[in-house]
Nucleic acid binder design. Structure first.
Lengths: 205, 205
DNA sequence: GTCTATACGACGATAGAC
DNA sequence: GTCTATCGTCGTATAGAC
């Protein structure tokens, strides 16, 4: 059973994540987080010693789900399978954790001023491991000799864009909200493009 | 000959663009813009009636260069040529107008709260025209039947990421500053992937 | 643990001399 | 057209009652 403390902290972090994603750190007022969470503002400061501390807590909570997708790169031995699972997972994250993605994107875009050195290292390590894995497939002749780093950047960018820049996607597609078929279409196109680009033959879904 | 008024306005807009790109609208202090431009803060307010008016002026100044790349979609009749010119142009913009790209990305990520209805329409119209052009090539059987909207999103995302998330790119590549060869490698990979994905044969550079 | 009322600092904006 | 000095507001953070 969760203590009242844990329950409230979670509520505040979750609400704060939404507002930070929407407005960015500086434009977010603690009073707005409080209102949206249905709590008086002072309550926020009872659980978090400052707005920045709350923001860091949000950043922490956001990183793990965003890194989950990486597992597919390791768990699958076959390049085609690994890449298509990875892309699908990244798209699913853009759909299910859009706020998390936006908070993180904002942080990165401004040079990650609030990201702890530990997290920086963790992200770098994950990226390097994925790059090494892809390079291994290239060396084994199991895929075309693409630059693994830039391949990662393309996959990250084109999947995360459906979360970070969802406003633009909705404007162009004319949707009020992105639906399952939109994410599926995105995943299909990105997967096709990447697999053809890497010259590996797709596995069945 | 530029009037002193125009010269100062330009200096302020240019400086403001850098700071807004770095910090975002809310986190930017007008005093910082003033300091960086080597002017007293009151001077900013002599030329712009408010921080928001200055920001809107920056947004205005930023849109035209960002849309220039689109011309390649119309001016080239051959899909392969058009796409590779377009990607190269987008990458060049990410290199030469990184600040502009970041300001714009920030605005879009938060739902474009400051973008004028005219600019919204203009962007939508440009996008729709590009999409129609690509659809035309598909209908003519000159490229594989890809979804033109999602193809645009992939191209936008994967080229703009080199400006908007340059911090991350530099972290992973270990560079202190991205060099010509990095942008070239990016353009090459994205172009290869898109052309293979669309099943059109590359033109010579 | 919850909440009201308030202190305090920072920053946008301006008045007014030069 | 330039700049100093200052005002007013807004928002973070806290004191202290319940």
């Amino acid at each position: 059973m969760p203590t009242i403390r844990e329950r409230n902290k979670r509520l505040i972090i979750k609400t704060a994540c939404q507002v930070f994603a929407d407005k960015g750190f500086a434009a977010t007022k603690t009073s707005e987080i409080a209102d949206k969470a249905g709590l008086p503002k002072a309550n926020i400061y009872y659980y978090f010693k400052s707005k920045e501390a709350l923001y860091r807590a949000v950043l922490d909570s956001v990183i793990e789900p965003l890194l989950q997708a990486n597992s597919h790169i390791y768990e699958q031995d076959e390049p085609a399978r690994a890449l298509q699972d990875y892309i699908r997972a990244k798209i699913r994250i853009s759909r299910e954790h859009a706020d998390a993605s936006k908070v993180f994107a904002n942080e990165i875009m401004h040079g990650a001023p609030h990201l702890s050195p530990q997290h920086r290292e963790q992200l770098k390590a994950e990226a390097n491991a994925s790059v090494a894995r892809i390079q291994g497939w290239v060396d084994d002749g199991r895929m075309a000799p693409v630059d693994p780093q830039h391949l990662m950047f393309v996959i990250w960018a084109s999947t995360q864009t459906y979360a970070d820049f969802d406003w633009q996607i909705m404007q162009i597609t004319g949707r009020k909200k992105l639906a399952a078929q939109d994410y599926d279409a995105a995943a299909k196109l990105i997967t096709d493009m990447v697999l053809k680009g890497c010259e590996v033959v797709p596995c069945e879904a």
